[in-house]
Design a protein around this nucleic acid. Sequence first.
DNA 1: GCTCGGTAGGTGCACCGTACACTTATCTGC
DNA 2: GCAGATAAGTGTACGGTGCACCTACCGAGC
Lengths: 140, 140
Amino acid sequence: MPTHTTDEPQGGLPRNYLRATLLLLIGEAPAHGYDLLEQVAQLGLGKVDPGGLYRALRVMERDGLVGSTWEHSSAGPARRTYTLLPDGTDWLHAWAGALRESHRYLSIYLSRYDAIIERQNHPPVAPVENVPPGPPGPTP
Amino acid sequence: MPTHTTDEPQGGLPRNYLRATLLLLIGEAPAHGYDLLEQVAQLGLGKVDPGGLYRALRVMERDGLVGSTWEHSSAGPARRTYTLLPDGTDWLHAWAGALRESHRYLSIYLSRYDAIIERQNHPPVAPVENVPPGPPGPTP
DNA sequence: GCTCGGTAGGTGCACCGTACACTTATCTGC
DNA sequence: GCAGATAAGTGTACGGTGCACCTACCGAGC
């Protein structure tokens, strides 16, 4: 038996949506991982895997998109606060462009999907299934 | 040197966009692979890898989403024509729902991005960078 | 009759993002 | 001193995707 086949749709979110989202949020205001974790969750995508989030942040730091500084809060453990670097801003712009295209694509997709549904509700001619045309009468 | 780091955005298309798109197109009208290859390309996503497309079709057939029949055309090699099966229709609906959410998410993302850009053009107060407050005078 | 290019379908493979499970450390309140 | 919230990570396997490459059929042209 195949392990997985075609499972439930489970999202259909853009690829790399995590990086893109993190760049946006950090671009709005510097923040630390745990904070971003909650912000991301409230942004429409519930429950994000913390591991993936922290990993994404470190990769982006390694690549010079964001910078981090440790902040020793009086309450709770120390936190890493991330800020957007110039390269990160460039990337944010690039991502926004790509996502705008993706957004347009989804609009097309959904309108064509709606057209199919519409067509099913108002068949153009000869509804082969039921209600044959002509006056009702005893079956010949 | 790391092999890949954070490369160019390269799309940001939804995950599984290929299956979703194929289901939609086959739902509109039965078609064969090569045909779908061109339709998909014209749908906004240029140049799709044929291998992946054919593979996706076979997986979906294996999972009972689509059915196929060989058609021996008089001109050119035989072609496999795919039609949507009931399970495929269910999936199409599910995908459309997921993609609609994704579409909404992208709307939010883009409007927040635009807000950032806007904010950069019209800083709310005290543009920390230049133009210090106080009467202008000769540089000390 | 042989090659060339378009049509049609397919495999092998490696990369990388993601999801899931699990761990560590600090501080507050009971 | 233990539980639970805050905060940051690691290990790992899965699966979609992209790239490169291969087979087969058919008509046109040399």
